[in-house]
């Protein structure tokens, strides 16, 4: 039971992360390899907001140490991620797109990683931050297992909000324009929309969601250090997007759940050779890499390709399921388009 809660909590966080990345890759069409830097940044900032001032005699150093509540820590962490995203995005997106953008963002991640690892006064170097207090620990005095359940509920609530939000955004003018920018930025600009601004908005939105996911991740492990993440982590999230359906909110929800929760669990059933601690994680990454390739070859738009909102009878844009669309299409054909 405890194990199931733990898996579901981590899985929920991973799905939230994939959602944020999908805004950048699926909607705006930017191959952003800096995503996980914002996850780490969110975790670190929330951590140093919540922790008491560092105790130098124990060899701990980090900035801030303000001993604030989880609520304040989260808001500050998300805000910091959004602002950093705004600064980095406004520089990178103004000049480059496509593969050069991927190279620049990967470089940014590595620079951040190096500093978080080597420059101890920032986030305590390779030791990282640890012993982060529980969320709302002062108010809700949960037992250990009670807290785990609470955290799962919190993650689920955030996930529901994120899915609802993105669902609305996808159909809104914002999402629509962003998808148009992805399809052809130049013809979008010919109609008076700045592709740069839209891409920047997507980058900032994704960064903020990444930061929020980082905060939850920090609560889950109650510590964060350079050993706990790598720049390649972003790429694992891509597998959820590609399998589920690039751009599709529900597709990514499904794809990320299956690939990023299912594969690591399934791999556990494979007997590992004794004494090879790296075998299972390595095998897991191999399988995820292969899954990405198979989907890119055979089904590049994923299991549930992004859907198009259609016009309902009440004059609003809404979803139409495949069977309904099929029937409506048939009826239209029978009634005769030729009459038009």
């Amino acid at each position: 039971m405890t194990y199931a809660i733990s898996v579901l909590t981590l899985g929920g966080i991973t799905v939230i992360l994939a959602m944020g990345l999908n805004v950048q890759y699926g909607w705006a069409g930017d191959l952003n390899l800096s995503y996980y830097a914002y996850v780490a940044l969110g975790a670190y900032v929330c951590g140093v907001m919540m922790l008491p001032p560092p105790n130098a005699s124990e060899g701990n150093f980090y900035v801030l140490g303000l001993h604030q509540s989880f609520f304040v820590g989260t808001i500050v962490a998300v805000a910091v991620c959004a602002v950093v995203g705004l600064v980095v995005g406004s520089i990178a997106l103004r000049r480059v797109t496509g593969d050069y953008f991927a190279i620049v963002t990967l470089s940014v991640t590595l620079i951040f990683y190096t500093f978080s690892d080597q420059y101890a006064p920032l986030f305590n170097g390779p030791q990282g931050i640890y012993g982060v207090p529980h969320a709302f620990g002062g108010v809700l005095r949960f037992s250990y297992s009670g807290y785990n359940l609470f955290l799962l509920g919190l993650v689920a609530a955030v996930l529901v909000v994120v899915v609802f939000l993105f669902e609305v955004l996808y159909r809104s003018a914002f999402g629509r324009t962003l998808r148009a920018v992805r399809d052809d930025p130049i013809s979008v600009s010919a109609f008076g929309i700045s592709p740069y601004r839209r891409k920047l908005a997507a980058y900032v939105l994704g960064s903020a969601v990444g930061g929020l996911g980082g905060v939850l991740l920090l609560q889950y492990v109650s510590a964060f250090s350079p050993a706990g993440w790598s720049p390649l982590e972003t790429f694992l999230l891509f597998s959820g997007i590609i399998v589920g359906g690039v751009g599709s909110v529900w597709g990514v929800l499904f794809g990320a759940s299956v690939v990023l929760i299912g594969v690591p669990q399934a791999v556990l059933f494979i007997p590992a050779p004794a004494g090879a601690a790296t075998f299972l994680p390595a095998l897991q990454n191999c399988i995820i890499g292969l899954i990405i390739l198979v989907f890119l070859y055979l089904r590049p738009r994923g299991l549930f390709p992004e859907r198009s909102p259609v016009l309902g009878f009440d004059g609003a844009l809404k979803w139409q399921s495949r069977p309904v669309r099929f029937v409506v299409g048939r009826v239209r054909t029978l009634l005769g388009e030729g009459a038009a």
Partner: peptide, 27 residues
């Protein structure tokens, strides 16, 4: 044209461009 948008959405994007951002408004 924007291939993965519907015909209607293709026209709507142009209208959006004139009426400005409405991501927040939609939420």
């Amino acid at each position: 044209v924007w291939p993965y948008l519907t015909t209607l959405e293709n026209v709507l994007v142009v209208g959006d461009a004139k009426s400005g951002y409405s991501g927040w408004a939609a939420i």
